[in-house]
C-alpha cells in the first residue's frame, strides 16, 4: 500500500509546493529527559545479531546519542533456546553467530537500572526477491529515476514488508513499509519512491543502490508504517506526529524485529 499512498502524496504535495519557499526558523521547543531507545534485530541470515540500547537527547542537543552500557541482554525463542548477548561496543550488544528460523517467536529481554524491557517478535516466512529494476517518473519537466523491487507475494495471508535503501553504501533517509492488503498473492512490483533528502539529492547515473527487503511481522510493520506516514507533509503539516507504536514495554522507544531479509543491488543508468 505504501506505493499507492506515495503516488498520491507525491502528486498532492507537488501541486501546492510549485510556488512554495523554505526558510529555517527558530522554534520554541520543550526539552525532555533521555528516553530509553532499544533497537533489536534478529534475522534469518547467519552471522552476528545485535541489539543497540541508547538514550534520546533533547531536540536542541547535538545528534550524539548516549549509549546505555552494562545491560543484561538475552534473546530466547519458543523452542527453548536462549542466547546471551555481550556488549561489544558501548551500548551495542551482539551474539557472534545466530541464525533465526522463520515461523519462530523470539523474545528480547534487556535488564538495566532495575527495569526489565521485553518484546516479542515472530519471524515470518522467507519471501525471495526476484529482481530490482529502474523506472523513470516524470513530474512536469522533472524526471526522476526510481528503484522497483519485484517479488511474489504469498497468497491467502497478510504479509508485511520493510525496505532499507542504501545509495553508494550510505543509508537513504527514507522509511519504506508496505503490506499486501490490496495485492495479496500477486507478482508485486514495488516502487520505492525516493525523492532525495529534502528533495534535492536524487538518484544519479552510476549510483549503486542496495535494497534490503525484510519480511516483518505486523507489529514491526505498524512501527515502520507509522514512521513513514509522519515523514510526509501535507497541508498544515500532514499527519499529527506521535511516537510509533513500539512492541517493547515500559515506554521504551524503538522496536524489536525478528525478520527475514535479502539484499540485492542495482546500478542506476
Amino acid at each position: 500500500m505504501k506505493t499507492l499512498t506515495q503516488y498520491i502524496l507525491a502528486v498532492v504535495a507537488v501541486v501546492p509546493f510549485l510556488s512554495s519557499c523554505e526558510k529555517v526558523i527558530d522554534v520554541k521547543i520543550d526539552t525532555s529527559p533521555g528516553q530509553v531507545v532499544i533497537q533489536g534485530n534478529i534475522t534469518n541470515v547467519a552471522g552476528p545479531q545485535s541489539v543497540k540500547i541508547s538514550r534520546s537527547v533533547s531536540y536542541t542537543d547535538k545528534n550524539e546519542f548516549p549509549p546505555v552500557s552494562g545491560a543484561t541482554v538475552t534473546v530466547t525463542d519458543d523452542a527453548g533456546h536462549a542466547w546471551t548477548f555481550t556488549e561489544t561496543q558501548p551500548g551495542i550488544y551482539t551474539y557472534a553467530s545466530l541464525k533465526g528460523d522463520p515461523g519462530h517467536a523470539y523474545t528480547l529481554k534487556a535488564v538495566f537500572n532495575n527495569t526489565t524491557y521485553t518484546a516479542v517478535s515472530t519471524m515470518p516466512e522467507v519471501i525471495p526477491v526476484d529482481s530490482l529494476s529502474l523506472k523513470t517518473l516524470t513530474f512536469g519537466d522533472e524526471k526522476s529515476k526510481q528503484v522497483q523491487v519485484h517479488f511474489k507475494d504469498p497468497a491467502g495471508k497478510p504479509n508485511y514488508y520493510r525496505y532499507v535503501m542504501k545509495i553508494n553504501n550510505k543509508l537513504a533517509k527514507a522509511v519504506f513499509a508496505e503490506n499486501d492488503r490490496f495485492t495479496d498473492g500477486n507478482d508485486i512490483t514495488s516502487l520505492l519512491f525516493y525523492n532525495g533528502e529534502d528533495g534535492d539529492v536524487k538518484l544519479r547515473n552510476g549510483d549503486v543502490v542496495e535494497i534490503e527487503m525484510q519480511s516483518v511481522d505486523k507489529n514491526v510493520f505498524d512501527y515502520w508504517f507509522t514512521l513513514s506516514q509522519q515523514a510526509q507533509n501535507g497541508p498544515g503539516g500532514g499527519v499529527t506526529p506521535g511516537n510509533p507504536p513500539s512492541n517493547i514495554n515500559n515506554q521504551a522507544l524503538g522496536y524489536f524485529s525478528a525478520h527475514t531479509k535479502e539484499v540485492k543491488t542495482i546500478t542506476v543508468k
Binding site: Q35, Q39, S56, Y59, F65, K173, V175, G237
Partner: peptide, 21 residues
Amino acid sequence: VTFPAGKYDLDGLTTYYYTER
C-alpha cells in the same frame, strides 16, 4: 502543532520523540 521534544537514532535515521499532543 506537535513539535518533537527529543530525538533518537535508528541506524542513522534521526527519529523524533514526541511528548504532548
